[in-house]
């Protein structure tokens, strides 16, 4: 049980840090997008620890995979107007 607790502490810390990076205005938008994908990836491992393998698969495939690429496709389209 303690190793699970340790893993969840690490994952929670990773999620918070990645979320802070994702909403930080100093970083470029590409880094924000990748950080929000990382939040999803950490969350999907957390779902596995919370005994929800179905949700973990969905979050990994959709939340961190497809969503990130949707953002990048749009970012590629608005090149030049993307930055604040």
């Amino acid at each position: 049980m303690s190793i699970l607790t340790g893993m969840s502490v690490v994952l929670a810390a990773g999620m918070i840090v990645a979320a802070l990076v994702a909403i930080s205005p100093q970083r470029s938008i590409a880094i924000s997008i990748i950080a929000s994908g990382a939040v999803s990836l950490f969350a999907s491992v957390m779902f596995l620890l919370l005994a929800a393998p179905d949700v973990a698969m969905t979050e990994a495939a959709i939340g961190s995979g497809l969503t990130t690429f949707l953002f990048f496709f749009v970012l590629g389209r608005v090149r030049g107007g993307g930055d604040d």
Partner: peptide, 19 residues
């Protein structure tokens, strides 16, 4: 103020609600 950053914020909140 940037729309893309705003949407990134929404996806982070989305993940939070799932958790």
């Amino acid at each position: 103020r940037n729309l893309l950053r705003l949407i990134v914020g929404f996806t982070v909140a989305d993940t939070g609600t799932h958790l």
